[in-house]
């Protein structure tokens, strides 16, 4: 906030006490306020430092002092802090939830971000500078001047096989991932395949094993050697990690068991006709009726429908 100089005053000094009341009042009036941030500059600096460390050590979970956010823990507070530390008035933000810009959570977050940082909002990937997501990488691949921010509930890929914090730290430090491999072995023995659907563990940069939560297997191969930067934020667990552009991301699997993405034979989007996209099932509206499939990425689907309509006319 800056003090406004009254034309009759040379400087804003304690001599103001001697001035007539009307000029004092106007000199004390604040200007049109800039957006009030949720993260103060110290907090942003800490988040940025954590992000820089994360980018320097691909796949490594960097601890950071996660702040209280006006979003319940587990609802994207980590991703939110990253976005707030990244964006300013020049940025354009797209927020999706399960691939949908219009999900309740996505709408709230987007409003929160734009209201408090002055950034613009969009639903189109090619207009955005930062894309925050809970569950998908948009079908339109982000480019090398865009940043993908992912909301992560559980950042620790080894959580299923170890609880002790010291032991987890040791395992990552010594690249001792044997317990993870054993759990994959057991999975194949029990189920014939590796059954992890979200949060598939990947080896990043040939060194750290990282949880790809929250994206589905479908999107995992898209992280490998991606042109864009991916930042993962876990607010409740207080961790930030990153996959810098052009980094190797290899899903953990046995040499003789290829990594497969989800696929339902014959499913197509009932709205735009897509087959090579991540589809979600919409349950039947009436009991006994049939469910149908639609694209998870609503913006992409809508554009395809618009294109289909144009071509038809």
């Amino acid at each position: 906030m800056t003090l406004v100089h009254d034309d009759e005053l040379d400087t804003a000094t304690p001599a103001v006490a001697a001035m007539p009341e009307s000029t004092v009042a106007s000199s004390l009036t604040p200007p049109e306020p800039e957006p009030v941030g949720i993260l103060d500059e110290h907090a942003k600096r800490e988040v940025r430092r954590a992000m820089l460390s994360a980018v320097c050590i691909p796949g490594y979970q960097v601890p950071f002092g996660s702040r209280e956010m006006p979003v319940a823990r587990g609802w994207g507070s980590g991703g939110l802090q990253i976005t707030l530390a990244l964006v300013g008035a020049d940025d354009v933000v797209k927020v999706i939830d399960q691939g949908d810009d219009e999900g309740v959570n996505a709408v709230n977050l987007r409003r929160l971000i734009t209201d408090t940082t002055g950034a613009e909002e969009t639903t189109e990937v090619d207009e955005a500078t930062v894309i925050q997501t809970r569950h998908r990488i948009p079908e339109d691949e982000p480019t090398d001047d865009q940043v993908l921010v992912l909301q992560v509930p559980v950042p620790e890929p080894l959580r299923g096989v170890e609880r002790d914090m010291m032991e987890l730290a040791r395992m990552h430090a010594e690249a001792d991932y044997a317990r993870m491999w054993v759990s994959l072995y057991e999975d194949v023995v029990r189920n014939g395949v590796i059954t992890k659907s979200t949060g598939y563990p990947c080896l990043v940069g040939g060194r750290y094993v990282m949880a790809t939560t929250p994206i589905p297997r479908w999107d995992v191969p898209r992280l490998h050697q991606s042109p864009f930067l991916s930042l993962f934020g876990a607010g409740r667990e207080r961790r930030i990690y990153a996959v810098p552009p052009l980094t190797d991301v290899e899903p953990l699997t046995f040499d003789d068991i290829p990594f497969e993405v989800e696929r339902t034979e014959g499913a197509t989007c009932s709205l735009c006709g897509a087959t090579e996209a991540y589809l979600v099932e919409v349950p039947a509206s009436r009991p006994g009726g049939e469910g149908r499939w639609t694209c998870s990425d609503t913006a992409w689907c809508r554009r395809r429908r618009e294109q289909n309509a144009e071509e038809a006319s």
Binding site: D176, A178, W181, V182, Y185, V188, F254, D255, D256, I257
Partner: peptide, 8 residues
């Protein structure tokens, strides 16, 4: 696997 075996 700790010794590097990766073929199931």
């Amino acid at each position: 696997t700790a010794a590097g075996w990766r073929n199931f």
